[in-house]
């Protein structure tokens, strides 16, 4: 009975993130983006559009801020004193950071966004009622809402033939966001299971990582000690976990965006190396 369940598992259900939560992670998918290699070409974004059936909204709606780019390149000009300020542009590819203490999760009234045992921040389209609270509580603002029935105009014949059959096309009124290409993760996991082995680095890549011409991005399982991603995180002395980073060498380039908000993101950024430095 459920009451028995409550009483016998009380201490387990009272554990928060500090004590590791109530379930063990099978994987902890993580990413690394080297900003020094990013040239701002938007290939990752384009790849994402193709892979994830993202709606193309057109110029008007884009300028209204109703675009659906799960992966976006943010541009900042922070060297205005240069002769050509454009030279100082820096790029920040921004997508869902799959935070382990995600602020979007506890505010969803219907539990449409939750944490999977893979360490992913999942979004259940069928469960979403579109209260948009998750987006309002996301410091990265990487959640995109279907303001219209985009599918009606986004892929006119015969473009609808290029839609990815591995995942759905979303209708109006639901929230969506980067999934770390969960459909590819699914296939890779199934294949590895059939071949009775662990999922390795070479089994798959998300579309953005695959599309990056300068190999600025890296993807893998943080819990796998041998994965490249884990090695890079360790190399830059950034640890996954909710509390303050304890870097031995603070000059190392690795950082997570909005570390101070304690949301524990799964994406490591490597700062751009400046000319002056």
């Amino acid at each position: 009975m459920s009451l028995e369940n409550v009483l016998s598992n009380w201490s387990k259900y009272r554990r928060g993130a500090e004590e590791g939560g109530h379930h063990e992670y099978e994987h902890k998918w993580a990413m690394m983006i080297n900003l020094d290699l990013c040239i701002g070409c938007n290939a990752c974004s384009t790849a994402c559009y193709a892979e994830n059936n993202l709606a193309v909204v057109g110029k008007d709606r884009f300028s209204k801020g109703q675009a659906m780019h799960w992966m976006r390149i943010e541009r900042y000009w922070d060297q205005a004193d240069k002769e050509f300020p454009e030279q100082g542009a820096s790029f920040l590819p921004m997508m869902c950071q799959q935070c382990n203490s995600a602020t979007c999760e506890p505010v969803c009234p219907v539990a449409a966004t939750y944490h999977t045992p893979d360490g992913l921040n999942a979004q259940v389209y069928n469960r979403c009622i579109g209260s948009r609270y998750c987006s309002n509580n996301c410091p990265f603002r990487v959640r995109y809402f279907n303001f219209y029935s985009y599918y009606e105009s986004s892929w006119p014949e015969p473009l609808n033939m290029q839609l990815n059959p591995d995942l759905s096309v979303r209708d109006k009124g639901v929230m969506e966001k980067c999934t770390f290409c969960v459909q590819r993760i699914r296939v890779a996991k199934d294949k590895a299971k059939m071949e009775n082995r662990k999922v390795g680095d070479d089994d798959f890549k998300p579309a953005c990582v695959q599309g990056c011409p300068t190999s600025a991005m890296m993807f893998g399982d943080y819990l796998d000690e041998d994965s490249q991603v884990r090695k890079t995180w360790d190399q830059y002395q950034v640890k996954m976990g909710p509390y303050k980073q304890d870097k031995q060498e603070p000059e190392l380039r690795g950082y997570r965006v909005f570390e101070g908000l304690n949301v524990d993101p799964s994406v490591l950024y490597l700062e751009r190396v400046r000319e002056e430095v």
Partner: peptide, 11 residues
Amino acid sequence: EGMGYAGLNNP
């Protein structure tokens, strides 16, 4: 038609 006509947008 969708919430977009309320003028809402990403932020």
